[in-house]
Design a binder for these strands. Structure first.
Lengths: 115, 115
DNA sequence: ACAATAATTCGATAATCATCGAAATATCGA
DNA sequence: TCGATATTTCGATGATTATCGAATTATTGT
C-alpha cells in the first residue's frame, strides 16, 4: 500500500523551479552528491533560500544530508524516487487499451545514456 | 529535450490531495474516463471545487476533456504522464554506482499488489 | 420555448508558500 | 581560542493557492 501522504509531500517538494533543478543536479551527481554551497552557486540563489528548499526536499524524503567537514553534502534518495514513480504508475491503464499504446511503460528509466 | 516548465506545471497539478486522487481514478478508468460528476461523487467534494482542480490538471496537460451529451468526460493523458516520468529520471545515476544499487530501477512499478 | 440536468466561472476568504537579509550555529586551521 | 568558512534558522513581506456557495453557461427531452 503506497502512501499517499508521502507522494503528496514528494510531489509538492518537486513542484518548484529551484527544488526541481536542485534535485536533478543531485540525481546527476550520483552518490558523491553536492554541497549546499555548490548548489547555491549553480542555481544562483541566496544560501538562505536554497536552505529552505533543501529542507523541503529532505523533509519529503527525496534527498539525504550528510556532513563532510564544514560542508553539508546532499544526495538524491533513489529509493524514494522509485517509490514515487511506483505510486504514480500504479494501476496504470486498467481501462484496457494500454498494452497497445505508448502508455504506461517504464521504458524511460532506461534512457539514461549516461556514462 | 524535456521541458522543465511542463514538468513544474504537471508536478504542481499532482501535488494536491484531491487532484492526485482524481488523476489516479482517471488512470485506473482508462480510455473510458469518468464524468466530472462521477469524480465529485467519489471524492466527496463540491462540484465547483472539483472543477477548479480539473482545470489545473487539464492546464497541466495531464488529462483530456471531452463532452458527451450533458456530461464532460475526463481521461488521463498517458503520453504526458510518461513525459513527466522521463524528465524525472533523466540522467539518472550519472554518479556511477547506480548499476550496482537499488537505484533507478523501475522495479517498483511492479509492486502494486493492489486489487 | 421551458424545465431539468451537468458542469463551469465568479468572488470572497482563509491558508500556505517563497524570498532573502540578518543573526545564529557548527567546523576547521593556526 | 580566534578568525574564517559553510550553512541554517529566524522573521517579515509579498505572492500564490484552496475552498465553496451563488450565479452562469451548455445540453437535452418534451
Amino acid at each position: 500500500m503506497s502512501n499517499a501522504a508521502f507522494t503528496i509531500r514528494a510531489l509538492s517538494a518537486l513542484a518548484q523551479e529551484h527544488r526541481l533543478a536542485a534535485f536533478r543536479l543531485l540525481v546527476q551527481a550520483g552518490a558523491d552528491g553536492l554541497a549546499a554551497g555548490s548548489l547555491a552557486e549553480r542555481l544562483t540563489i541566496p544560501a538562505s533560500s536554497l536552505s529552505f528548499h533543501l529542507a523541503q526536499l529532505t523533509n519529503a524524503g527525496l534527498i539525504i544530508q550528510r556532513r563532510q567537514s564544514r560542508s553539508l553534502i546532499y544526495t538524491a534518495d533513489y529509493a524514494a524516487m522509485n517509490a514515487l514513480m511506483g505510486y504514480l504508475t500504479e494501476n496504470c491503464c486498467a481501462g484496457g487499451d494500454c498494452t497497445t499504446d505508448t502508455a504506461c511503460e517504464p521504458q524511460l528509466v532506461d534512457e539514461r545514456k549516461v556514462a
